[in-house]
Amino acid sequence: MRHNGTDGSTRLHRLDRWLYRGGRPNRLARAINRAWATVFATGVLWPDRMVTLRVPGRRTGRVISFPLVVADYQGERYLVAMLGQGTNWVHNVRAAEGRAVLRHGRSEAVRLDEVDPGARAPILRRYLACSQGGRTHIPVGPQAPLEDFEQIAVQYPVFRITPDRSASPPGSG
C-alpha cells in the first residue's frame, strides 16, 4: 500500500480522490483550483515552486489559470500533469504550441516543451518529492525505484519550462 500515514492522511487521500474522480476535477475542485491559482499567482505566501499557469483555452481562446507545482531537476524546471494525459491544461498547452505564462508574484512568459516519456522517470520522482498533492494521483511512492516510474511515465505528461523571449505571449495580463 502506497499510503502508510495516519488516519488523517487516509481521509485526505479519499477526499482528493473524490475531488478528482475519473481524473477530472469536480465542481468543488474547480472552485478550489481557482482560489489556489489566485493565491499562487500573488507569490506572497508560498515558495517559488507554487505557480499559476496561464494559457489560452483551446476552444474559447479565453485565458485559463491552473495552480501547479514546479519540480526542479538537474538545474531545469518542469511541470507535471498529475491527472495524466486527459488534463485540460495539457490539451491547452499543446494547442498553444507550448506558449504560456507562469505567475508567482510576477509574470514570466515561458515555452513548455514536452519531455519524451523515456526521460520522465526521474522528473516524476522529483515531482512527488515536491508536490504532496501529486502523491494521491500518481500510483508510485516518492521513494520507489526509477523502474517503477519508467513503467508509468507515458501516462503523465511532463513539460520542461524555458523562458520565452519572443513576442508577448498569450495570457500575460
Rank of each mutant, 00 (worst) to 15 (best):
G75R: 10
P67T: 01
Q143L: 15
F149W: 04
Q85V: 15
V51T: 04
L124I: 07
I138F: 06
G118F: 01
F159D: 12
R17H: 14
P157A: 06
A121N: 03
R106F: 12
E150K: 12
R103T: 12
A153Y: 02
S166F: 05
A96E: 00
R106W: 11
P142L: 07
W18V: 07
W36E: 12
R49H: 13
L128R: 07
R160K: 14
R30D: 05
P157W: 09
R58Q: 15
W46F: 14
E108V: 13
T60G: 05
I152E: 03
P122V: 05
A109M: 03
G141A: 15
N92H: 14
P56Y: 03
Q85L: 15
L83I: 00
G43T: 02
A144M: 09
L68H: 01
H91N: 13
P157F: 12
R62K: 12
D148Y: 02
R54F: 06
T6F: 06
S166G: 15
P145K: 03
I32N: 00
P56C: 01
G86S: 13
N33V: 01
V158N: 08
P117Q: 02
V140H: 07
R111C: 11
R111T: 11
R62W: 09
L68Q: 02
S131F: 03
N26C: 02
A41R: 11
L15S: 02
C130D: 14
D16N: 12
R59G: 08
L79E: 00
A31K: 08
I161Q: 08
I138M: 08
D7G: 10
F40W: 08
A71W: 13
F66V: 06
H137P: 01
A129E: 13
P56I: 00
D116K: 02
V115E: 07
A153T: 02
A121K: 07
L68P: 00
G84K: 07
I138G: 04
G43P: 04
P67S: 02
N26L: 06
H13L: 14
